[in-house]
Design a protein around this nucleic acid. Structure first.
Length: 592
RNA sequence: GCUGGCGUAGCUCAAUCGGUAGAGCAGCUGACUUGUAAUCAGCAGGUUGCGGGUUCAAUUCCUGUCGCCAGCUCCA
């Protein structure tokens, strides 16, 4: 086994899993009262959940690491053995979590253990065959955190320690360095530094202030999405941000989403009017459809809206621009005949792939088919038959499209299954960026019908979908992806004009005036030195810098420098305009 | 909401045993008028997140609260 390397995913996981046991052994040595829960290998490293009184501090993590090194150096043989259930229970009698796990193992399955020195753990394996194979200077404990037993918030919260290991200390150092590099791209830090957004304590959690740069980027994304959607046959709506309780009762939000809403008034006093801010656009936009009777000839009707939503997230959930309490999405609802489902759904997938591809985010996306959980029917509306039908329809479409997707059980909306497009950010964390959902239930609730060719009332299907998802979240991902250096067409500041001497001020003002008609320009005609101006210009973020001095005035040129450090030399303004116009018009993501 | 960590100037960080808050950068003013990653000088900047407590004295100790970070749970 020692011939194998980390290229081999199975070996990597085995190695990390053994690390997890070594960590558990070290913890047991240092804290004999610790009760062990589970300790699996994960995508990057491992964790172990432990029930223990003490909190793990940085100091205690170091102490555990030190003991782990000892265990490696002891070169303990790791031996697997199997016990019948009654003996397994006897062996683990002091480990309540292990007992619970043993009791869940079916009687006909064998119960395996791994032993290294004095330490024995219930485990399916596999493992390395000696603690000596783990390089004592190749691992690090990264963090401690809380985690619920079996992932259920009703259960006790245990202490979790995360760790990472490699086969050499150089690889470990490399990993830690890359992690630091990723932190520098963190939108939550970079976005504040570059003044895209800020938060204010007394405004509230999850309520970011979009500063001029952030607001500008979001505005131009919104205009672009609205324009493209218009060309794709979308009808623009603008609907209220709040409504009476009665609307949400029809939509089902009152039953399924009340604790996620901001309610204005007493939700339980039926004698008084009660409003709530909208957490979703659906029931509002349906009203546009309901405005008059519709024929089968009218369908599909595609409604689009740049829609601001409010969700009362739990206080621990907020994170920069990724998870907020007020956000704006490119919302849309397609009211369609059942026979149009396939084409329209595919159209939605194509559209959002176009948007995500153009901004450069598509490469980090994966698809998730989010289904209901048949064992938790309380969370959902509709019958099992209706769910099976909707999911079967979506499965057929996804398979036809040849999309490779993962299935997420219990990830569906309460009214239907979803195709979620998941974005993996610089830290490897995944969130939904775009969602397309099939809804076969809502039309009936809202009495949304159309008159078929036979003159009879028919129920349409509804597709809920976004194009670019939530703009705040998208902006966060763009900041991270481009490390703050957004593509020219969406950069909040495209050109910075710098004067070398005060003699160039008037010339610079004229240049600025010409460019301002088409581009976002900032003129720095302060009397500081050029070096000073460049230093303070965040020059690796601003696509183009025009440097103007006596030579340029005389030759009627601008000296152009790009944020990548390329000096394009002096050129007439028209020539510069052509270069940048091409890049902006064609939404090129690469500068040059 | 839960577990843990952290809140000192716009940013990055100091402040010994509890003894009355200091530096660099950014900012502003002046000088310099400079051709591609730190020109010089000066000024200003703080209810140490906020409230309560202990103490002669709190940035420091205790407590509550708000916010930020990591993770869990939940979700776009």
């Amino acid at each position: 086994m020692e011939e194998r390397t980390f290229e081999d995913k199975e070996f990597r996981k085995t190695y990390w899993h053994t690390c997890s046991h070594i960590m558990a052994q070290a913890i047991t040595r240092l804290y004999p009262d610790a009760k062990l829960a589970i300790g699996p290998a994960i995508d990057e490293g491992w964790y172990y959940d432990i029930d223990i009184e003490e909190s793990f501090t940085n100091d205690s993590l170091e102490a555990i690491e030190k003991e782990m090194k000892n265990i490696c150096k002891e070169r303990l043989q790791i031996e697997r053995f199997v016990l019948p259930k009654n003996e397994a229970i006897e062996l683990m009698k002091d480990q309540p979590y292990k007992l619970e796990l043993i009791n869940d193992i079916p009687d006909d399955e064998e119960i395996s253990f791994y032993k290294q020195g004095e330490f024995v753990d219930l485990c399916a394996g596999p493992h390395l065959n000696s603690t000596g194979y783990v390089k004592h200077n190749g691992f690090k404990l990264l963090a401690s955190a809380g985690a619920y037993w079996r992932g259920d918030e009703k259960n006790k919260m245990l202490k979790r320690i995360y760790g990472i290991a490699f086969q050499s200390k150089e690889e470990l150092a490399d990993f830690l360095e890359k992690r630091e590099e990723a932190r520098k791209r963190d939108h939550n830090k970079l976005g504040r530094e570059l003044e895209y957004f800020s938060t204010v304590e007394y405004v509230g959690q999850g309520l970011p202030i979009l500063l001029p740069k952030g607001a500008r980027v979001i505005q131009l994304l919104q205009r672009w999405v609205e324009d493209v959607e218009q060309r794709k046959g979308y009808l623009l709506t603008k609907t209220p941000l709040l409504a009476k309780r009665e609307l949400y009762k029809i939509s089902g939000h009152w039953d399924h989403y009340l604790n996620g809403m901001f309610v204005l008034g007493d939700p339980y006093d039926e004698t008084k009017e009660c409003f709530a801010l909208r957490p979703m656009t659906c029931p509002f936009q349906y009203q546009a459809y309901l405005n008059r009777e519709r024929s089968y000839r009218d369908l599909p009707m595609r409604f689009g809206e740049t829609s601001t939503l409010f969700r009362n997230e739990d206080s621990g959930e907020m994170h920069g621009l990724i998870r907020v309490r007020q956000f704006t999405i490119s919302e849309g609802h397609l009211v369609i005949r059942p026979d149009q489902l396939e084409d329209e759904f595919k159209g939605c997938v194509e559209l959002c792939k176009y948007f995500l591809g153009t901004v450069g985010l598509l490469d980090n996306c994966s698809f998730r088919f989010s289904q209901w959980d048949p064992s938790n029917t309380k969370k959902y509306e509709g019958t099992p038959e209706q769910w099976e039908m909707a999911q079967a329809a979506m499965k057929k479409i996804l398979d036809d499209l040849g999309l490779s997707y993962e299935i997420g059980i219990g990830e569906a909306a309460f009214y239907g299954p979803k195709l979620d497009i998941q974005y993996k950010n610089v830290f490897g964390k995944e969130d939904t960026i775009v969602t397309i959902q099939i809804d076969m239930l809502s039309a009936q609730k809202f009495d949304m019908y159309y008159i078929g060719s036979d003159g009879q009332k028919k129920l349409p299907y509804i597709i809920h979908r976004t194009s670019l998802g939530c703009y705040e979240r998208t902006l966060a991902y763009l900041i991270e992806l481009y490390a703050g250096a957004l593509p020219v067409w969406m950069a909040p500041e495209q050109i910075r004009i710098l004067t070398i001497t005060d003699r160039a001020i008037e010339y610079a003002q004229n240049v600025a005036k010409k460019l301002e008609n088409k581009y976002r320009v900032v003129l720095d005609n302060s009397s500081n030195t050029l070096k000073y101006k460049i230093r303070n210009a965040q020059m690796d973020k601003i696509p183009y810098m025009l440097i103007l001095g006596d030579k340029d005035i005389e030759a009627k040129t601008v000296s152009v420098r790009t944020r990548t450090g390329d000096d394009l030399g002096a050129m007439p303004l028209d020539e510069f305009d052509k270069i940048i116009e091409d890049i902006v018009q064609n939404k090129k993501t690469v500068l040059k």
